[in-house]
């Protein structure tokens, strides 16, 4: 069985006044119907990964190397019509800020219907029926009336539901969600997460969900990939990552959780800041901040250690642990 998505040693660099190495040797595999969370802090390359998948990066200023395969098709080789069919047809995206990602001058129903008509080539009436059906599926109350609402007339949660309806209207096999709940308040956030989870099961989609919120990640995902400085430093099932984090960065992230902290106690923060990405890493990117760093960490790239099926961590310490056992 071919994987839904396969990223093979993906490298993305931006060229401007200085070169930014945004993604460095990133490899990832997503199976059909899986929900993967890309977890990482700001600037770790989560959003760039999603944009690269849709080939949305400005071609003049960015260079993409490596392999992107969706359903066996080489995405980097697509162009023109094929690329347009791929975007929105095969893969579609939910944006972080629905207030900005919906066109303010068109009614919700028209926006969804237009996307369906463009992609599927169906009649106007059929497209509107699909749009209405989608609004119903994302549980927008009284969808008939919401069809003729403008985006600014909806609440934040409602808007994100409309955005999801728009993204799913053409039944993509892969959904990219770029922090879709960050702009929402906590109660709406959980509703949207549950909705996404449900729709994902219903449609059998693969989902890549980008977030910096570990609580959200645990809530929604089958698998978690932790990103740091444009690399995936640890990957595994949600259970494995939460129960048995092997990378010091993942351990730090989990320790920095607010929920277990006692009042008055200092929060466990990871000292230092993420590295500048102006050079391709030659050693472990996390070593300057790592409490367990050894001279070997700063001398060479960390080894990718396989801990089990589809469970990897790139850390020298993990390798030593295994050797000791």
């Amino acid at each position: 069985m071919t994987a839904l998505l396969e990223l093979d040693r993906l490298n993305v660099t931006f060229h401007g006044e200085q070169t930014i190495h945004a993604i460095n040797d990133l490899s990832l595999r997503l199976e059909q119907g899986e929900m993967l969370v890309l977890l990482g802090e700001s600037g770790s390359g989560k959003s760039v990964t999603l944009k690269t998948l849709l080939r949305l990066l400005p071609p003049a200023r960015s260079r993409v190397q490596g392999g992107i395969t969706v359903n066996g098709a080489d995405i980097l080789a697509l162009s023109g019509r094929k690329l347009q069919e791929y975007r929105g047809g095969e893969v579609s995206m939910v944006f972080q800020e629905p207030a900005l990602a919906l066109d303010p001058v068109y009614r919700i129903g028209d926006q969804i219907a237009e996307a369906v008509r463009r992609k599927k080539g169906v009649s106007r009436a059929e497209a509107r029926a699909t749009a209405l059906d989608m609004l119903r599926r994302v549980r927008i109350p009284s969808p008939e009336r919401r069809m003729s609402n403008f985006p600014h007339e909806l609440s934040g949660g409602m808007r994100q539901r409309a955005m999801i309806a728009l993204a799913l209207a053409c039944r993509p096999r892969l959904l990219l969600a770029d922090e879709p709940t960050t702009a929402l308040d906590a109660t709406v956030q959980i509703q949207i997460l549950l909705l996404l989870r449900e729709l994902q099961k219903e449609f059998g989609m693969g989902v890549i969900f980008v977030t910096h919120d570990i609580g959200v990640a645990v809530e929604i995902s089958d698998r978690i990939a932790v990103m740091y400085a444009g690399q995936i430093i640890e990957e595994g099932s949600t259970h494995e990552i939460i129960r048995d984090p092997r990378h010091p960065y993942t351990q730090g992230l989990l320790a920095a959780n607010l929920h277990d902290a006692a009042p008055g106690e200092r929060l466990e923060a990871i000292p230092g800041v993420p590295p500048a990405l102006d050079a391709k890493p030659v050693a472990c990117s996390f070593s300057p901040r790592c409490p367990h760093a050894q001279p070997g960490c700063r001398a060479d790239l960390p080894p990718v250690v396989s801990l089990g099926p589809r469970r990897h961590v790139s850390c020298l310490l993990a390798q030593q642990d295994i050797a000791a056992q």
Partner: peptide, 26 residues
């Protein structure tokens, strides 16, 4: 540079459609 233009590109609109529908309208 608005998000909805990028969203339109992400959903597979070609340059002409985006200019005619999303840019012109705004």
């Amino acid at each position: 540079s608005a998000d909805y233009i990028e969203a339109a590109r992400a959903s597979g609109g070609n340059a002409l459609t985006i200019m005619r529908v999303h840019v012109l309208g705004n």
